[in-house]
């Protein structure tokens, strides 16, 4: 009988993304047996410490060639070979760009069903897992079950809390099978975006600007607010289309779907496609000079006013608050 949870993720120089800790916490909380992890590349074994902190029972590291460079087909083939040895009931991936690329490929190779970008998992009476995932960019939620013996899920970042539960994981020596015709597609170069830019899908606070910002140079007002808040900066689509900010800023149904604790929508009207991308935010704060703007219907707090007056005051007020605490 297959049992336990198999968590598969990437790492970079021994560091993992926060979502990996969130996924490990979920894996443990399912209480379906032991939690086994698999990660790849140079320095993979340096993640052992953090895996122990978050309660992994067993860890597999493939840090040798050819696993030092990501290959969707190479990694997927090797994972498909190792799954029967680990024999898990559930496989979890982070729903990062990496996990979204690899998990459907693995799913099809092993003939397992996969639910992507899940918000939560729940064990039902028969020890099977059901998942809730947003569809139509969050305009509806779908509760789904996987019908295959191995049940696969990828987990959306920034939803589940990461809670430590220290253990001493056993390192498993399971050598990968590398088929000669795999590793066809290989990553040859990685280009980091500007340093210091926070990833929107993982940010706790986001300040986001729309056409109401009027001109690209005015985004410095948002940057200043973001700096005092330790926030990431995002935007509506037209502003990214105009080239005022990079495409990676674009939030919404056809951009990034975000779930921060606080989302500041500044000079953003609140079109349905934009709202779809921010509905997972715990608090929405709207700043807009049009009291009828639809953004106020979904906001927790709103200021009706001119953003060019409000933003500098807000930045100062928060700076003062932080200085006093």
């Amino acid at each position: 009988m297959s049992q336990g949870v198999f968590v598969i993720f990437d790492q970079n120089q021994g560091q993992v993304r926060h979502v990996v800790l969130e996924v490990l916490t979920m894996a443990r909380q399912l209480e379906l047996g032991s939690v086994t992890t698999l990660t790849f590349g140079a320095n993979a074994s340096q993640t052992l410490k953090v895996l122990g902190e978050y309660g992994a029972d067993q860890a597999i590291f493939w840090d040798q060639e050819p696993f030092t460079r990501y290959s969707s087909d190479g990694f997927a083939d090797a994972i498909a070979h190792v799954v029967p040895h680990v024999n898990p009931a559930v496989i979890l991936f982070p729903a990062s760009a990496w996990g979204k690329d690899l998990s459907p490929r693995v799913a099809d190779l092993i003939g397992a069903g996969l639910a992507t970008d899940c918000l939560s998992l729940r064990v039902s009476t028969d020890n099977r897992v059901t998942a809730v995932r947003p569809i139509y960019a969050g305009k509806a939620l779908a509760e789904v079950a996987i019908e295959t013996p191995v049940q696969m899920f990828s987990i959306r970042p920034n939803i589940h809390k990461a809670i430590p539960d220290p253990k001493t994981p056993t390192v498993l020596d399971l050598a990968p099978v590398v088929s000669p015709d795999s590793f066809q597609s290989v990553v040859t170069e990685r280009k980091e975006a500007q340093t210091g830019v926070q990833e929107l899908t993982e940010a706790d606070i986001i300040v986001s600007g729309g056409r109401g910002m009027k001109a690209p140079e005015n985004f410095k007002l948002l940057d200043e607010l973001a700096t005092v808040l330790g926030a990431a900066v995002g935007s509506s689509r037209p502003v990214a289309d105009e080239g005022w900010v990079p495409h990676s800023y674009h939030i919404g149904q056809t951009g990034k779907v975000v779930s921060p604790t606080v989302y500041f929508a500044v000079g953003i009207s609140g079109a349905i496609q934009h709202l779809a991308g921010i509905s997972g935010s715990k608090y929405i704060v709207a700043i807009n000079n049009d009291a009828e703007a639809p953004i106020f219907k979904v906001a927790n707090y709103g200021i009706v006013g001119d953003l060019f007056q409000v933003l500098p005051l807000l930045t100062e007020e928060i700076r003062a608050l932080k200085a006093n605490n």
Partner: peptide, 20 residues
């Protein structure tokens, strides 16, 4: 391989506090 159990609407957002 995937079975839909049910669709539900997202939870309603609370009443906003608007400052003018």
């Amino acid at each position: 391989r995937i079975r839909l159990i049910q669709l539900t609407p997202p939870s309603e957002r609370p009443e906003p506090t608007i400052l003018t």
